[in-house]
Design a protein around this nucleic acid. Structure first.
Lengths: 192, 192
DNA sequence: AGTGTAACTGACTAATCAGTCAATTATAGA
DNA sequence: TCTATAATTGACTGATTAGTCAGTTACACT
């Protein structure tokens, strides 16, 4: 019954994701998650020993998907700017296509329910971004800001754009937001 | 007994602020808030009819303080850049001095517990920022981005800087974060 | 068909929740 | 000092919580 196992586990995680973003961690009961997933409350605890474990598993999973999407095809880009632009569009695309997950990450990345261990595990997948940014500084393409500042600015800017796209209905606005957002970040970081 | 009334009310709000940021809305019980404030549970409900009312009152109050601090002394500034820079430093200063409140606003501005009414009431205090940004566009000083995008970018950038200052111990880093943060935003927005 | 095992169920529990209210205390004016 | 009123209390309530567990079901292998 391997198929079933996977189906129920993902069903639980999808329901949890939906309800957590709608109502928060404490606002969502395990009974509600189980009901939404179409299983008994006991079954949830077969897959996740505690509610906290479910939260952390979900965060780990979603953040992994995000960082994976973000890094797609950047090797094919030649210049620093092109690489950054590619990461930007990857990030926005993932955020728009996975709006619920994007909201979840934003809403809960600073939550006390996510353990230090999970946070540090997740951080390991972002080393490539750190390296890229430092390389941009070393080659003189971007200004000498701290990598933390640069990355945080970049990421928060993407959140702004995704939220604006989400709230706006017109799809022509969408492309302008993406363009303008990148413009702001690029002109802000670049060395000229 | 007017003095007493104010003291207890603020004691409740301060305790709630502390616990909400530490543990979230649902993670904090009215009993915990009362205990922290040094009063009985019943007393809390004399001042705030429901927990939701307490949350919204607190959000309204804190956001009001934030917008008030943000707008200080901007009339004394002549150019658009100087005005923006003044707002920037006001915002950062308030965030650093009122770290708990800054966290609270950031953590809960997109929360489902804050009613649409409260959100709209709060929004009214930010009209002056909208006007300023639109004026910057009209005079050609800043590029023709949507005001929503500009304001959101500006505000999120300040959150990044405040968080970095909070996590960093050195105070010389602090000034560099503030300078660099403004540089990124200004170069990103300005028309050259 | 019979058997062993893993997945699943939902009624159950002790703890905790937001909110109530009858009783108590503090205060201000006469 | 007496009295009316407002502020405060904390034990209490019905509802809800995370997590348990004895019993049931589904299936794989012989």
């Amino acid at each position: 019954m391997k198929e079933q196992v996977i189906d129920k586990k993902t069903a639980i995680m999808e329901s949890a994701l939906k309800l957590f973003t709608e109502r928060g961690f404490h606002g969502t009961s395990t009974a509600q998650i189980s009901k939404e997933a179409g299983i008994a409350t006991g079954t949830l605890f077969n897959y996740f020993p505690t509610k906290e474990n479910l939260i952390n598993s979900l965060y780990f999973e979603v953040k992994g998907q995000l960082s994976q999407s973000m890094g797609k095809e950047i090797e094919a880009q030649n210049t620093f700017q092109d690489k950054l632009r590619k990461i930007w569009s990857n990030l926005i695309k993932w955020g728009v296509d996975n709006q619920e997950k994007f909201l979840f990450v934003g809403q809960f990345c600073s939550s006390p329910y996510i353990t230090k261990f999970t946070r540090e595990e997740v951080m390991k997948e972002y080393v490539f971004l750190h390296d890229l940014v430092n390389q941009g500084i070393k080659t003189g393409v971007s200004r000498d800001f701290s990598a933390e500042l640069t990355i945080a600015m970049f990421y928060q800017a993407s959140r702004v754009v995704v939220n604006l796209i989400h709230d706006s209905d017109s799809s022509q606005n969408k492309n302008k937001f993406i363009e303008d957002g990148f413009h702001i970040i690029w002109e802000g970081l670049a060395n000229n």
